[in-house]
Design a protein around this nucleic acid. Sequence first.
DNA 1: AACGAAACGATCAGAAACGATCGGGAGCGA
DNA 2: TCGCTCCCGATCGTTTCTGATCGTTTCGTT
Lengths: 367, 367
Amino acid sequence: MTEKLAVQRHELILRAVRAHGTVRLPELVELLGVSAVTVRRDVTALADRGLVVRVHGGITMPRHAEPFPRGPQSVVGPAPTHPLVGMVAPSVEYYWPAVIQGAQTAVAAAGGRLVLRASSYDAGEDRRRVHELLDRGVQTLLVAPSTSGRAGVELMRWLGAQTVPVVLVERLPPPELPTIALDAAVTDHAIGAGLAVRHLATLGHRRIGLVTSRQSPHSDAIRAGWTTAVSSLELPFNGVPALDVPTYGSPQWTRAVDQVIDECLSADVHAVLVHADREAIGVLERARDRGLSVPADLAVVSYDDEVAAASDPPLTAVRPQKHRLGALAAQLALARLADPLDRPVHRVVLWPTLTVRESCGTEAGPA
Amino acid sequence: MTEKLAVQRHELILRAVRAHGTVRLPELVELLGVSAVTVRRDVTALADRGLVVRVHGGITMPRHAEPFPRGPQSVVGPAPTHPLVGMVAPSVEYYWPAVIQGAQTAVAAAGGRLVLRASSYDAGEDRRRVHELLDRGVQTLLVAPSTSGRAGVELMRWLGAQTVPVVLVERLPPPELPTIALDAAVTDHAIGAGLAVRHLATLGHRRIGLVTSRQSPHSDAIRAGWTTAVSSLELPFNGVPALDVPTYGSPQWTRAVDQVIDECLSADVHAVLVHADREAIGVLERARDRGLSVPADLAVVSYDDEVAAASDPPLTAVRPQKHRLGALAAQLALARLADPLDRPVHRVVLWPTLTVRESCGTEAGPA
DNA sequence: AACGAAACGATCAGAAACGATCGGGAGCGA
DNA sequence: TCGCTCCCGATCGTTTCTGATCGTTTCGTT
């Protein structure tokens, strides 16, 4: 391992500067075993990306900028003076708090106020909450409505007919209503599932299972992303489990998780993408109960990354950018408020990221 | 150790990169016992699928988000005060001037400067223009590259590997490269075509034809939107012309337009969506030459709305929001510049609008 | 304030890696 | 058997990376 790639040198430089705070250039020359001019070039490249700060004779850590990275880079125009923004979230316990905070931040930055109403994945209740907010006098609405069934379609139609601007959050109009001209900010969960599948494939897994939670609105997109990734990577489908499990804690829950593990064992599947942290943690626990070791016997990627970091072992997880999504939705609403007529429909899609922790190990077992 | 199949080599490459984190290309040549060019091909294939990352001299594991959010926002580089933004547009004569002006406005509003290079729907020239801009020292790039054929894929791959942020304008990565993590701002031309079809349907037309210009990158989307709108409205397809015409002014041009009108007459079609204003004006003129009256005998909706207002009669037209699109793309680029690492991929979709003028009348003739 | 050592930036040259193109051979179906 | 496609290797021109040199700037010491 004599010569090193440029990226390896960069990694070593960053590690050194993290360890010592400041590093002198000759030290790096010795550490990396390359000439001073090369080190200088590496350092310049890193400094260009803002990862280190050059000083005469060496480098230091960058001074952290303001704790909150600038007021939301307005993707949009100016807003009215003190807008009152309503928001209906289907839950305030899971996933949505970060979205709400993001929206809150953006609205506050614009000098407005966010009024929240919690609903519960039910079209009727969604509609009542919207009504309450309209009575309250909100000038624009952020809504994550229920989209299932006929009631969902009906609700969407109703939202599209409102006089105040409505922005959909993590929801899109159903294909039956292709012309509903609502702005929307959504996460591309299919890409997220693909991220997870690719990560597991890089680690050597070829048989990659899927577990989705039955009543989540995101299940379909995740399943679609899993399917396209598996097929575009030319991985096998046959026998690989792709299951739906009922709500965490429901009576059938334990049996369903057992079934997941049974199917994995019998189908020689040692890697699964599990939708929602709670379900993933359940799989983790049940696997341990049955004497399986994670990640050696079963690699798990979770989807959502709400509490994935706190599990044992910490779960590698796909992380939708919830805070940014909320902020984006609020900015869309404010921009629409400032320009209700001419402004065309905006649909913004954010990619999730993958956070690697320990639940997948570094290499597949003896596949 | 005879010859190995491609999949076996890929497996070995993945195993090597898992084991060491990074692998140099000559090492793989020795490991696999094949020539360097073959290894390079294998590596490119794996990188296209997102399983490894290519760097000069070898490959590394895909780098995902950091497991621990170390130093709060440690990498929010100082947003450059006077950013220099490069833009490559495929034309400066049609459609693109408004996009360019939009980008120019947004960049100027941020205190930066936009440097434009015109290309001509050619991958090679696109690449040369990008090169020029990089030499010029631009910090970020707005590009509307050619996406057709192998050269298009190659160009997109190259754009994805640039160190400066690149934002795609009116283009998306091809399905072969699902993991190219570039921001993009695009118009939903399928929705635009649907707008036109629905307008004509509202006026009483049921047999609605389509004319697209052969070499436009938007033709496919417009055709797809026309198809879904016609089928979702349960309008008839049989016998309704859906033609491609060659470039305006080319030798075959007149014949093609005549054919359009012939087919409309013989198929009892009195309404057409024509892609691109020039083509629509051509249809208008030829129809008048042949004694047809617009809109009484033939209702025409144009697509693009560049010069549609100035035709006789003024053309009802689908109008992509070009100015806004350019501004949006520039804002995406500037935001990415301020936060190159943490910021997730943004894909923004704008709907076109429909501008009603006189070329469709107020009601369908005696259909 | 002046001096010398160290660090820096710019430029040039050699080596390695890269992309594009052409040609040969194996496998497959007509 | 012919023709086709796909896969692999060789070659060539270009790009990128690395190290050496030289003149200039910066810093610390006197």
